[in-house]
Design a protein around this nucleic acid. Structure first.
Lengths: 179, 179
DNA sequence: TAATCATTTCGATTTTTACAGAAATTACGA
DNA sequence: TCGTAATTTCTGTAAAAATCGAAATGATTA
């Protein structure tokens, strides 16, 4: 029996769908993800359609999107011609995959644009100084934040988890931080 | 003269507007924010309308939204009846305000929902174990991440900046991390 | 307190996005 | 290689969100 028949599971799927619309996905994509996340066996597209009452084409698009994020993968079931799909269940990996892809789609283009503007501003002499300064600072800020993210994301999972557990106590290692 | 007349400033505003639509705001909100961010003087609503070619009502709504995020404030100009508005220019504060508000709107309700489901699942004996387990782990994961965020966000700005500069080198303080 | 100016709220319109269903393509097996 | 099953792409429609303009509300000062 499909997990969507259990009220708590269904509510999870519906809530995930709603939140997904605020997190840069659409309802269908988030619902499909939630269903696969709760399922302990790979599901084929048709089963997803029936569970969520979505059109086949819609599910196809959603699956492609989720695979683009790297959080759903195709798995082959021997003796079955249809594709089956499984979601990432390791939440740390899920989180990392989503942040990486969102950065790529939403942050990188902005850094590139601001970099381009910075170059052009250098040549434009009658641009007010404060405009140059503010666009420049924004570029620097986002680039710094992103650079930090790239470094930290490269750390071992166990290190990251240890850092999380440390919480605000990391401040101890910053000389003179006192907070 | 309004900054929007300078091509680089205008491009910044337009790009910010487009990206805003991916970041949970609408185009108008993000454009108004960008304009105010680049302006070195407070602007009144009418000036914003003209600069961005937006309806007065639309600008009113956008300003309310930005004030809700705590990244735009009303400033009074002596001898002028109209409200004037200024954007946060300290980028660290801007970033902190946005993350705090998005957490409040988008994460907290999910934690609450998952907590509620967890309670109900405890009572529902015929729910498959793996469903209980996965919803429970999701709740725990998001709550942990959020708890970490709350702790770190409470640190002094100078401490946070020092931690950023440290980058991946924080790992040194985790015994046996070796990465 | 009346008149004017500023702001917000509301309803209508436009634009954008999501979604369904049909058509086309691809993969597979007989 | 032909036929069938599976998947994707395309096109139109429906739903949702953004935006406008008008009307209502609120504020200021003459």
């Amino acid at each position: 029996m499909g997990v969507e028949k259990y009220p708590e599971a269904l509510e999870f799927i519906l809530h995930w769908g709603e939140m997904g619309t605020h997190w840069g996905a659409n309802r269908s994509v988030a619902q499909v993800h939630a269903l696969l996340y709760l399922s302990d066996q790979p599901l084929d597209a048709e089963a997803i359609c029936e569970a969520l009452d979505l059109a086949r084409s819609n599910v196809s698009t959603a699956l492609k999107e989720l695979q683009g994020y790297g959080i759903v993968r195709r798995t082959h079931i021997p003796g079955d011609r249809r594709d089956h799909f499984t979601a990432e269940t390791e939440l740390w990996d899920l989180f990392m995959a989503i942040t990486a892809e969102r950065k790529r789609r939403e942050i990188d283009p902005t850094i590139a644009k601001l970099g381009e503007l910075k170059d052009r501003m250098a040549a434009n002499k009658d641009l007010p100084a404060h405009v140059r300064e503010r666009i420049g600072r924004m570029h620097e800020f986002i680039a710094n934040l992103t650079g930090w993210y790239e470094q930290v994301r490269g750390l071992k999972k166990s290190t990251l988890i240890a850092l999380m557990k440390l919480g605000a106590k990391v401040a101890r290692f910053i000389p003179g931080s006192k907070d």
